[in-house]
């Protein structure tokens, strides 16, 4: 069985053009054995409502600059980096999550975007609305990992995929705000328990002022175990989480609760 995998979550606010703090965190994570490091949503770029007030070339330059730097870090520290990033295509901005390692950069275009009047990513970005495709899945040191965009966590097809592909770790970059702490905590703990997987949720920090309303992004980044318990949680300050995930813990949970086994001996519900 694989050795434990050390994972890191960077809880930051938007970096703007200044990524100088990253060097410190990457060095530290590397020294602690981390093989993968994850950013929250809208850390490399500004919050999407702010992007509307920026020249397109500025947003593009910001993304290019950060991706170039992260590629260097991925090589220097031999790490996989998961970073939500806005890229520009000919029709407009696309909300993606980049997986960066020494071999290259791979993008996952978020499939379901928030469509609410007060938070309308679906209208702002040009991500296609089409039949659902496979999420971003990859293997690292014997662990099967799936990347799920924060909002996509609410949709069962992605979780069915977690079960079908026997995912060991779900990476969940988010930009949760207002008073949603408890709802997110409870959903993440429940999904980890039901789908027998670790979940690493990485939420951004910072504020956005919309007329009279202040949107405060509250952190609460956490690693949740397959038994639904929180292994480690950050509070609402800039910080980094570095923890181990272990296949033995997943195996034990599956052995005790037998969810996967119970389904495997029955036909699917039509």
């Amino acid at each position: 069985m694989s050795s434990p995998l050390v994972v890191a979550a960077l809880q930051l606010q938007t970096l703007g053009f200044n990524p100088s703090r990253l060097e410190f965190y990457f060095k530290n994570a590397h020294a602690r054995g981390a093989k993968i490091i994850v950013f929250g949503e809208y850390v490399l770029n500004h919050f999407f409502k702010e992007l509307a007030s920026m020249p397109q070339s500025m947003v593009k330059e910001q993304s290019d600059k950060h991706l170039k730097l992260l590629k260097t870090y991925a090589q220097e520290y031999d790490m996989t980096i998961i970073a939500p990033i806005v890229i520009y295509k000919k029709d407009g901005f696309v909300k993606t999550i980049a997986r960066i390692n020494s071999a290259g950069i791979y993008y996952y275009e978020q499939q379901i975007l928030i469509p609410y009047a007060h938070w309308d990513e679906q209208s702002f970005f040009v991500n296609k609305i089409e039949a659902l495709k496979s999420p971003m899945i990859f293997s690292l040191d014997g662990f099967k990992i799936m990347v799920m965009a924060g909002y996509e966590m609410h949709f069962p097809p992605f979780w069915d995929y977690v079960r079908a592909k026997k995912i060991d770790l779900v990476i969940l970059p988010t930009s949760s705000t207002f008073g949603s702490h408890n709802r997110w905590r409870e959903i993440i703990k429940t999904q980890a328990f039901l789908y027998e997987t670790y979940i690493l949720r990485v939420n951004r920090l910072g504020e956005y002022s919309d007329k009279d309303v202040k949107w405060r992004f509250y952190g609460d980044s956490m690693l949740v175990r397959p038994d639904g318990e929180v292994e480690m949680m950050l509070e609402d300050k800039e910080s980094m989480l570095v923890e181990e995930i272990d296949k033995k813990v997943i195996k034990l949970h599956k052995k005790e609760w037998k969810f996967e086994q119970a389904l495997s001996i029955r036909k699917e519900l039509k």
Partner: peptide, 18 residues
């Protein structure tokens, strides 16, 4: 560019500078 790299710069100022 040096000013843009400052940590405490507002978005409005950074757009003007850019």
């Amino acid at each position: 560019m040096e000013k843009l790299m400052k940590q405490d710069i507002s978005l409005e100022d950074s757009v003007k500078l850019y």
